[in-house]
Amino acid sequence: MQTLGFDRLVTNFQPVVDIDSGIVVAYEALSRAFFDDSPVPPDRLLRDAYRDDTAAELDSAFLDSALRAIETQGLESPHSVFVNVEPASLAHGRVPQALIGAPPLVVEITERALTTDPGSLLAAAATLRAAGHLIAIDDLGAEPASLALLPLLAPEIVKLDMNLIRRQPDRMAAMTMTAIAGYAERSGAIILAEGVETPAHITRARAFGASLAQGWHYGKAAATTDEAPGVTRLRPARGRHALDVVDEPGGTTPFEVVAGAAPVKLGDRALLLQVSAFLEERAGAGGDSAVLLATFQAEDNITPATRIRYEALVGSGCLLTAYSTRASAGLPHPARSVVVADDDPLAAEWDVILLTADYAAALTAREIDPTRHREGLYEFALTTDRALVRRCARALLSR
């Protein structure tokens, strides 16, 4: 372990409490590193690990320590412990092997994982759920674009970034509050406030819809647990949760998804270009909570003018991904380019999928006859149904 910057790990447990009753309903496993009996700052450990490409190895050591402590404490009732998993451990859709076969836990994923590689994260989350774990998104509100991606991951538990309940409210706080309220109302997800230290923090946490909390007001992390968790409440409040969209029937491309549920119409290229431009403008208006996914039948359809528009969108904080049959050169950082196989049905589509914290739309089209390209006629469908748009986004992010 010394190669990772420490020679000892200690796992403590901080209580997660029901705000109304004060009953402990779970614990969060928090591991801390030491070198020569001196604590090693976790931020420094993580920074160095990502720099040295050892973040997954570091995360594995922390997770092993947490699982051993969970077993020692007898905290094996379903979903009675939260554990943290780093984005590096979920790359390419994989999950830490230690979690396969472990007692059912609540797996916390930081929201930076949500914006770094959402497709891989969705695949990893499906594997974790199949193993019996619940998903919690951690620090929600620190990365605005994660608000639009929230219904795609569909976490059972949303953990508020502590700054939301500690700092003076601002526009970002209002946007986050609105997005969380809408998501919780549709899904029944549980809201948890962390970093609670004062009665004023509790009041703010309640305003954000939190029913659970953790922080020094309720207890610091300790090596042993004072009481067993009460009857678990870590389940969606409604019978059908937003994560059920994972198993919803539908097509494998946006056009197949929307065409099965919305009217398919005939339109010309000039009209669809204007609709595409309008959705890009809406993405810009959505600012740093916007997610835009666009497909181009070929890379050369991404014109210089398109790149200029995309540069402005990325500059506003929009999370942008372009799909085409060849790698798209010259896209502004950090926009992502995904290559689509020539025989993939997606290669024949023109799609613009937009998700923001409070708006959703999908334009999807197929050319009537590519051999008569000059005529520019397309069959297309347009929807602002958030559930359909979410399924379109999943169809793209799964690639």
Rank of each mutant, 00 (worst) to 15 (best):
residue 277 A to Y: 01
residue 27 Y to F: 10
residue 368 I to G: 09
residue 292 L to A: 00
residue 104 P to S: 08
residue 58 L to R: 10
residue 219 G to V: 05
residue 35 F to P: 14
residue 387 A to L: 14
residue 7 D to S: 14
residue 290 A to M: 06
residue 9 L to S: 08
residue 338 V to D: 09
residue 297 Q to W: 05
residue 253 T to R: 06
residue 244 D to Y: 12
residue 186 R to I: 14
residue 313 L to K: 04
residue 142 A to G: 07
residue 387 A to Q: 09
residue 220 K to F: 14
residue 64 D to A: 15
residue 6 F to E: 09
residue 88 A to H: 08
residue 142 A to I: 11
residue 178 T to C: 12
residue 335 A to L: 09
residue 324 S to W: 01
residue 129 R to Y: 07
residue 2 Q to H: 01
residue 311 E to F: 09
residue 180 I to S: 11
residue 133 H to A: 09
residue 253 T to K: 03
residue 199 P to C: 11
residue 290 A to L: 07
residue 94 R to G: 05
residue 177 M to V: 07
residue 389 V to K: 03
residue 386 R to C: 00
residue 43 D to V: 12
residue 128 L to A: 01
residue 100 I to M: 12
residue 286 G to W: 08
residue 258 V to D: 00
residue 98 A to Q: 08
residue 12 N to D: 14
residue 283 A to L: 02
residue 190 I to V: 15
residue 143 E to R: 14
residue 281 E to G: 01
residue 86 E to Y: 14
residue 365 A to I: 00
residue 143 E to N: 14
residue 224 T to I: 03
residue 286 G to S: 03
residue 187 S to H: 06
residue 107 V to N: 04
residue 357 A to D: 15
residue 265 K to V: 12
residue 147 L to I: 07
residue 61 A to M: 08
residue 361 A to P: 01
residue 317 G to K: 13
residue 337 S to K: 00
residue 197 E to S: 05
residue 80 S to C: 11
residue 48 D to M: 10
residue 55 A to E: 02
residue 202 I to P: 07
residue 148 A to V: 10
residue 34 F to E: 11
residue 14 Q to S: 06
residue 340 V to R: 06
residue 336 R to L: 07
residue 186 R to M: 14
residue 305 A to S: 08
residue 17 V to D: 08
residue 1 M to C: 04
residue 77 S to L: 08
residue 396 L to Q: 04
residue 360 A to L: 02
residue 303 T to M: 02
residue 24 V to F: 01
residue 122 L to W: 10
residue 115 T to M: 13
residue 203 T to F: 08
residue 164 L to R: 07
residue 283 A to Y: 00
residue 199 P to T: 05
residue 153 L to N: 10
residue 286 G to Q: 12
residue 147 L to C: 05
residue 240 R to W: 12
residue 85 V to A: 12
residue 346 L to Y: 00
residue 103 P to H: 03
residue 300 D to M: 03
residue 56 A to P: 04
residue 342 D to I: 13
residue 329 A to P: 02
residue 308 I to V: 15
residue 306 T to S: 10
residue 28 E to L: 04
residue 335 A to G: 11
residue 163 N to Y: 11
residue 62 F to D: 09
residue 99 L to W: 04
residue 267 G to D: 07
residue 276 S to C: 02
residue 340 V to I: 14
residue 96 P to F: 06
